[in-house]
Structures are given as C-alpha cells and as structure tokens.
C-alpha cells in the first residue's frame, strides 16, 4: 500500500494513521502470546515482570513431574489415535463425496462436517450421556472416539480441497491399464492428494491436542490431557510450570503452522492446472 505521488496531506495523515492502527491490532494479537515465553524462564516463582534471573527449573518440573508426564502421554495417545482414525475415515469419505453426484449430497456433507459447527458442550454432553450407558466414560476408547468425530470435518474439508483439482482421468487411465480399484487408490489417488491428507491429519491432531471441553466431561483422572491440566492449573493455582507448558505448545503451534504452509505451497505447485 504505497502512497501515490499526488497524495494530499489528508491522504498522508490517513495513510499513516491507518498503518498505525493495523500495527496496534497486530501488537494486540501477538504480544500476549510472546509475553508468556520469557516468563517461563524466570528463576523466581513470580508470574510477572521484571524477571529475577534465567532458569530452566519450570521445564524440569514440566517434564519431570508425574502429573504432567501423564498428561503428555495421554495427549499423545489420544491425539495420534484419533488422528489416524479421522484421517482414514475422512479421506475415504471425501473421495466418495467427490466421486459422484447423488441425491442428498449436500445434506450428507452438512452432516459430516456438523461436529465443527455444533457447540462443543453439546457434543460433550451427548457423548457423556451416551457413554454412561456403554461404560465408555473415563476410558481411552471413549476419548479417542470423541476426538475422532471432532477431527473428521477438518480431514474432509482439506482432502476435498485437494480432490477438486485432482484429475479423475488419471483413475480411468490406471483402470484401463488393468490396475485394481485398490491399486489405483494407493498408487494414483493417494500420492496426488497426499498434501491434503497430511494437512487434514495435522488439523485433526491439533484439534485433539487443544480440545478440553469434551475431555472435561468424558475423561477420568487417569486420562487427563495437557489442556485439561492447564485448565485446572489456571483455575486453581497459577504456577510457572503452566508457562513452560504454554511455551512448548506455542513452539508446537509454530511448527505446525510452518508445516501446513509448506504443504499448501507444495499442493499448489503440484496441482496447478496445466498452462499456468
């Protein structure tokens, strides 16, 4: 947004005050997140500036304590398992959705992505009541099922997006050369839509890793995840260990974002229509 040469004083004032406004909004977005990171290295137990000195003791406590250790383990078990199930179910369904037009397709799509739209507390309450009948509350199975459901919409959306630029003639070519449908899927479709599948999987994992409402309803004491521990930590006693956990989650978010950006660029390059 460069200023044209003929800009009047009014234009200039407007131009610079607008830039200042945007800068202030970005400060509002980023500063709170970054103000956490230095404090997590504070040697004192205070949660405010100025810092006393540098120390890694809160990280030691985070990785050393049984409570957080269990939470890390639970988050990984639940996050990775639900990611795998959501990715498999979501990818096959997305391929189906984009394969043909059929009556009620819009409704089916709306149903499949509804977990993203329905308030989390409703999902949590419904599954809690349902699992109470099946004895699935306070079990890993219950939590993995719940998080699979929550991750599915993201897989469907990302995979559908890559499928839109997928050339179905490739499948026909494969079939006409004698490949079985399964072979066509694994050798032709999957490699082509891999970036979408991979982003969908990451979305599903991130959703599970950040989810706390369903965990609060369904998990027992031995299934508490990182966000669940953070929630009770913020509620009950604000300790610097929370800041160490938060910093690690921020680093994780940064890595996740960069990976997704790379995937997006890659799939754009791969799937660019011919002639562009």
């Amino acid at each position: 947004m460069a200023l044209p040469a003929h800009a009047t004083i009014g234009d200039k004032v407007w131009h610079y005050s607008f830039r200042t406004l945007v800068a202030i909004i970005f400060i509002y977005l980023i500063v709170p997140i970054f103000s956490i990171i230095p404090l997590s290295f504070n040697s004192a137990e205070l949660l405010s500036y100025p810092m006393k000195g540098f120390s890694l003791r809160w990280y030691e406590e985070f990785f050393g304590s049984g409570r957080w250790g269990l939470a890390i383990k639970n988050s990984l078990i639940i996050g990775l398992s639900s990611m795998v199930f959501a990715t498999i179910l979501g990818t096959t369904a997305a391929v189906g959705i984009n394969r043909a037009n059929f009556a009620g397709k819009a409704l089916v799509v709306a149903l499949l992505i509804s977990p993203m739209m329905i308030p989390l507390v409703i999902t949590a309450l419904s599954l809690y009541l349902f699992f109470a009948k099946l004895g699935l509350n306070s079990t890993y199975t219950g939590l993995i099922l719940a998080h699979t459901i929550l991750g599915i919409p993201f897989v469907i959306i990302t995979v559908s997006a890559t499928l839109q630029s997928f050339d179905y003639n490739l499948m026909r070519a494969g079939a006409s050369l004698g490949a079985s449908p399964l072979r066509v899927f694994f050798k032709i479709v999957l490699p082509n839509i891999a970036p979408g599948v991979f982003s969908g999987a990451l979305f599903a994992f991130a959703t599970s890793l950040d989810e706390v409402v369903v965990v609060m309803f369904i998990a027992g004491p031995s299934q508490r995840t990182i966000p669940r521990e953070m929630f009770s930590g913020i509620r009950e006693n604000l300790s610097p260990t929370l800041l160490a956990a938060a910093t690690i989650l921020i680093v994780f978010a940064a890595m996740l974002m960069l990976t997704l950006e790379l995937l997006r660029k890659r799939s754009e390059k791969y799937n660019a229509p011919p002639g562009k």
Binding site: I33, A206, L242, A246, I250, A253, A254, M257
Partner: peptide
C-alpha cells in the same frame, strides 16, 4: 501462528 496457538495458552 495466533490461530494455531492453543486456546488455553491464549487465555492464560
């Protein structure tokens, strides 16, 4: 980055 940062981290 803000979008991907955990809800609990941002609230904290």
């Amino acid at each position: 980055l803000v979008f991907w940062t955990s809800l609990l981290v941002r609230t904290l």
